[in-house]
Design a protein around this nucleic acid. Sequence first.
DNA 1: CGGGGATTTGATAAAGGTCAAACTGAGTGG
DNA 2: CCACTCAGTTTGACCTTTATCAAATCCCCG
Lengths: 239, 239
Amino acid sequence: MNLTEAKTFNPAMAVMSFSPPDSTACRDRPLAALERLAILGRYDTGEPVYRCNDSIEHWYRLVSGAARLAAVSGDGRRRIVDFEFPGDFFGFGDFCSRQFCVEAMVAGTLVARYPRSSAERLADADPQTARNIRKAAFQSIARMQRRMVMLGQTSALEKVSAFLLEMSDRSQHCASSAVFLPMSRYDIADYLAMAVETVSRTLTELRIRQTIAFRGVRHVCICNRNALKTLTSGLTDRL
Amino acid sequence: MNLTEAKTFNPAMAVMSFSPPDSTACRDRPLAALERLAILGRYDTGEPVYRCNDSIEHWYRLVSGAARLAAVSGDGRRRIVDFEFPGDFFGFGDFCSRQFCVEAMVAGTLVARYPRSSAERLADADPQTARNIRKAAFQSIARMQRRMVMLGQTSALEKVSAFLLEMSDRSQHCASSAVFLPMSRYDIADYLAMAVETVSRTLTELRIRQTIAFRGVRHVCICNRNALKTLTSGLTDRL
DNA sequence: CGGGGATTTGATAAAGGTCAAACTGAGTGG
DNA sequence: CCACTCAGTTTGACCTTTATCAAATCCCCG
């Protein structure tokens, strides 16, 4: 984080996406107590939000931009465990120290972080805060379960189709069929556990079928959403 | 659940494994308030604890035995999203209705269930309960993150090795190298996103290498744990 | 002692990983 | 302003791995 931090926190910006569209209960509380603890940080592309083996100081919520949660093995291979988009809380999964690292994928990514001990104390005192944290954790679980189903897909077409649908759902541009992919093809490959070349080939295949179209390498337009859904074998229909 | 339910709840049995060995803070509280809400159920092999599309009535904790969390697609394929072992909480990931089903894998599996609304109210009133639920949710996240790394493994040997190590870690027989696999080869295949035949072949390969040995189809003995760890490429070393 | 699902083994073919090379596009310096 | 650079992306050829189909074997349970 090489830029100045906004110690004077702007509540409006951070609360903006506190209740994701997929959440069932949409509370109208203007400013959750938890947000008073938030410290906003700004990150450049590739810059780490936290590193592997770091101590557990904070919980996080991505405000704007995008980030990847990844593990790196001794032999250089990388596993991307999750992508974080606006509204996503992360950093819940570790107990002793960070098992993974989190890196921004787009310039100027904004991340709110909540000092863990203060947040825990606040949760003890304020049931609403405790409920918010629970909800954030449950949403994180739901996200990973959907992802598990996606990774379970066996063929490349199925995986990439499921991935595109996921990105479309989690994208901000809900109304449009245009989806911005903030990550590289390598990131997608490590996310789906496939070779980069296969990712590229599969995207080309979908383009030839006119299921998708490109307006730039990272701007994909979903022309035939039903075709994508069919390719995912109905497993993710109701997810 | 075709057997009688223990409405008169036995605290000792349920608290038994409340704090898994991997949890950092091992609280000595003899009976968490949450446990007073628990209703114990007993399930036969294959019997559902809950079904897909069920409403969200409870949270659950597996007390003894084992269960699988699975999704079934229209074309009959099945994805196993998680295995549940003693001490594991589950049922956190859904908001509107159950997206997956949970089925017991061994006869006489015991599951404690906590009425969700009562548990939420209790959490609001008792910070310690709220903390326990948070911890359970965070452990669930940690479990899935480890699994994500495992699913990310590309080769069959890597996946099966990682699986065996996971089962060993989560098994009750911590002292011994003997691991009981409560699930069928089909379950393993659906868990690792591979064909049954490949699972079987890979286990045979590991047996021939004398990395593992069998005392019955579902009783595996890990002869050379380091060999298994090496096969997982160090990705799961510190997980 | 069968019966039938679970497991293992075998043969084959398709899918995807790997290596290699060409292409693209954004940023850099002449 | 344009050539240059280099990482990211795409395409091609080849070959390993694993899914698939088929059949034999095991073993749990009545």
